[in-house]
Amino acid sequence: MTTVSLTVNGKAVSANVDPRTLLVQLLRENLRLTGTHVGCDTSQCGACVVHLDGKAVKSCTTLAVAVDGASVTTIEGLAHDGTLHPMQEAFREHHGLQCGFCTPGMIMAAVDMVNRRGHQLDEKTIREDLDGNICRCTGYHNIVKAIAAGAEAMGKGAAPVRQAAE
């Protein structure tokens, strides 16, 4: 067993883990942050996307021991004092989900997209950058709309984007 210490959603945490523990297992099983999902076994679906030191990564393809000392933001870290993050609000408003299984990964990928590319995202860019996120329900149409709207809302500073953890 190895001890890992990291910052998750702004809070310092540490856990004793077997080296083969994946980051997603640490989050879900040790920290009970079950918003991050596991949808595949092939690193393709993106349901497990979290931010690692500010960048979107697949937590099912990252070892917990390898991120010792890092800062992680999960879907649970986005809302602030009971107010949804603008990207979450945009998914709600534009009906960017059906079953909701892919949604945490979609939203983390969307916020990462804004961090990389800014607040004006056209449809082509959004669709391209969703390469790593699979949704089996929606047909993507409303997800794309939600991300464009959420990106803009983040720019207007509707609610301060939580950057503390990054």
Partner: peptide, 9 residues
């Protein structure tokens, strides 16, 4: 290569 998340790692 792959997708944005793959490219980050």
């Amino acid at each position: 290569i792959g997708d944005p998340h793959v490219r980050h790692r």
